[in-house]
Amino acid sequence: MKHFENLGSLCAYIVILLSPLVIIHKMDKLEAKVTQHKVIYYQVDSYGGAWHGKVTKKEITETGYAVEVGTYGRFLVTKEQYDTIKVGDEAPEFLKKRGS
């Protein structure tokens, strides 16, 4: 019986010693999520409306290829579309279509 009592105490000590490590690990993961830059992508829904804008920025992000069109925002595009777009060009027609 004494053997099991020592084993229980040993397990309790291990849990007490490892708890701070688990908490620190969880806090680091939470901090990484909080400090991560939030990116908002828009879906074009102004079908039929006339909008004009120039491509002001291109970038490759964790989520894919993105272009920014003036004040209209940032749009996800395919690699092929990304390669054909140049900064300073008018917004491509495929961005102006609904559901693009």
Results as ranks from 00 to 15, higher is better:
residue 6 N to F: 12
residue 44 V to T: 14
residue 92 P to S: 04
residue 39 V to G: 05
residue 62 E to P: 11
residue 79 K to M: 07
residue 83 D to P: 05
residue 16 I to T: 09
residue 90 E to Q: 09
residue 36 Q to Y: 09
residue 47 Y to V: 00
residue 10 L to H: 09
residue 90 E to C: 07
residue 92 P to C: 03
residue 67 V to N: 00
residue 48 G to I: 02
residue 6 N to I: 10
residue 32 A to T: 14
residue 30 L to C: 10
residue 95 L to G: 02
residue 77 V to I: 11
residue 79 K to D: 12
residue 71 T to R: 03
residue 7 L to F: 15
residue 81 Q to P: 07
residue 30 L to Q: 11
residue 78 T to Y: 04
residue 21 L to Y: 14
residue 31 E to K: 03
residue 75 F to V: 01
residue 54 K to R: 06
residue 51 W to E: 05
residue 67 V to Y: 05
residue 74 R to Q: 09
residue 98 R to N: 07
residue 50 A to Q: 06
residue 71 T to L: 11
residue 39 V to P: 06
residue 72 Y to W: 13
residue 88 G to K: 00
residue 2 K to H: 11
residue 81 Q to E: 13
residue 61 T to M: 10
residue 24 I to Y: 13
residue 87 V to I: 14
residue 67 V to C: 07
residue 70 G to K: 00
residue 44 V to L: 04
residue 57 K to I: 09
residue 9 S to R: 13
residue 52 H to E: 12
residue 17 L to K: 04
residue 86 K to P: 04
residue 62 E to R: 10
residue 87 V to K: 00
residue 74 R to N: 00
residue 78 T to A: 01
residue 97 K to C: 04
residue 33 K to Q: 14
residue 63 T to H: 12
residue 50 A to T: 13
residue 65 Y to S: 02
residue 59 E to Y: 13
residue 7 L to P: 03
residue 70 G to W: 09
residue 73 G to N: 03
residue 26 K to F: 14
residue 58 K to S: 10
residue 69 V to R: 01
residue 73 G to H: 02
residue 33 K to W: 13
residue 44 V to W: 06
residue 68 E to C: 09
residue 25 H to V: 05
residue 9 S to I: 13
residue 55 V to F: 09
residue 50 A to L: 03
residue 36 Q to H: 11
residue 65 Y to R: 00
residue 99 G to K: 01
residue 74 R to M: 08
residue 42 Y to V: 11
residue 66 A to Q: 12
residue 21 L to I: 07
residue 64 G to L: 08
residue 78 T to H: 01
residue 29 K to Q: 15
residue 74 R to I: 14
residue 76 L to I: 14
residue 36 Q to I: 06
residue 54 K to F: 09
residue 74 R to T: 12
residue 26 K to P: 00
residue 37 H to T: 11
residue 88 G to N: 05
residue 65 Y to D: 05
residue 51 W to S: 00
residue 8 G to M: 13
residue 41 Y to L: 14
residue 34 V to I: 15
residue 90 E to N: 11
residue 7 L to T: 13
residue 40 I to E: 12
residue 62 E to C: 07
residue 31 E to W: 09
residue 30 L to Y: 11
residue 95 L to C: 03
